[in-house]
Write a protein that binds this DNA or RNA. Sequence first.
DNA 1: CCAAAAGTGTTCTGTTTACACCCATGT
DNA 2: ACATGGGTGTAAACAGAACACTTTTGG
Lengths: 241, 241
Amino acid sequence: MHEVLAAVLQVRNQQLQVLLWQRAIEPDAGRWALPGGRLGDNEDVQTSVLRQLAEKVDVRDVAHVEQLEVFSAPDRMPHRRTVVTAFLGLVPCVADPALPDDTAWHPVTDALQGSPRTAFDHGLIVRRARDRLRAKLSYTNLGFALAPPEFTVSSLRELYAAALGHRVSATNLQRVLARRGVLVPTGGTAAPGPSGGRPAALYRFAERGMRITDPFAVLRPPEAHHAPEGAVHLADPRPAP
Amino acid sequence: MHEVLAAVLQVRNQQLQVLLWQRAIEPDAGRWALPGGRLGDNEDVQTSVLRQLAEKVDVRDVAHVEQLEVFSAPDRMPHRRTVVTAFLGLVPCVADPALPDDTAWHPVTDALQGSPRTAFDHGLIVRRARDRLRAKLSYTNLGFALAPPEFTVSSLRELYAAALGHRVSATNLQRVLARRGVLVPTGGTAAPGPSGGRPAALYRFAERGMRITDPFAVLRPPEAHHAPEGAVHLADPRPAP
DNA sequence: CCAAAAGTGTTCTGTTTACACCCATGT
DNA sequence: ACATGGGTGTAAACAGAACACTTTTGG
């Protein structure tokens, strides 16, 4: 039996959250599980997981999907041998899709500490998804999948801080992403808050698809210092990290 | 039907080579395929691929194995729907396991250009394996899986050059790996060649398991400059970023 | 003494962080 | 004016590439 499932992550309310649904039947009734289901006969795993997510989240809201890892321990589900291909899915913070009654967003840190008890090995999968996102935020343009179409640097800073779990300097975030050609100013500005302050410039991500922006520092080909952005494949679709 | 297979890579004769076996029966008879087979009922995918490799390569020779990706296009094999979990396997250059008659090493560059025609989607899998190896050589200690227990810096330079596909400076390779604590001098020296030259110092890798040695440069937590080696999870077992 | 190979010292450059300072707006 | 945020300038720290130079061997 082959299944697919996804850890769908979104930054909401300054926290990185994951989409879970509460199981109604045994095994693991009452526990919270990642959305997914059986692989169909005429679809590959990525098509399948997007189809299944359409039942929980509007597929158009999912800005990025990538394979995480196969989980296949013979006893990972008690009733039946099930091999699952796990995916990472990312939803921009502005999307707020309607959800079924048994489905809700939960802070990732809570889920990892057992606050909503997770089913089977889904806690481990959530951890892998979070770690992958954190790594890729550092060396790809993956932020585009968390951010709205237009944003200020300070709002982007909050997204990165929530996903990474530590403070991020707006000054340096702007410079790094700008020099890499990831961020493009739209020319517009955001109105200041009620307490005043200079209006913030609006930016957008230069590309929609994932791209590696920070070619690994060492062991480059000689005399390739000014080479065009390296297109190193790492984990998958593009991939990973 | 779930299968596992592995792109087993080794540097032999200054070239990165991959282990392939020639199919005797249809479909794709005569073409060269990656070793693997059916997932058993009581094993996970990694256990399974190591078991299957034992038929082709002595398992003790495989120094590192990690999950690459699931390939699941419905038509990837013509006769039967098959989902496969692909692995990357690495064998130290000193190992020379006995092989069955239908099995042989082939240069990766040749296989990617169709010199030995590859079966199904195995050419793509070989490319993904090579790309993963190249990326990880730059930011992990993965060289340990290609190198012998003891080696000189110039022989290590040749391994890296073969795997990366470009020249590598022995001077800088030594410095980078030494500063990261990856390389440890054994105290011994290698005898010079017939044409003389200063005897080379012998080194070994400090650790057997894979470790990330080059935490991604940007978006680190503030004031973490001298932090201990980052333990960022990227792709898999560790894996992967 | 010379050639060959290994190893070290030094400089240069690019990247990132840290921090000071200037800018634009509301009250 | 002044407080509040936004944005820029600049210096310091670090890592890697390139290259010259020294060391140690065999002929």
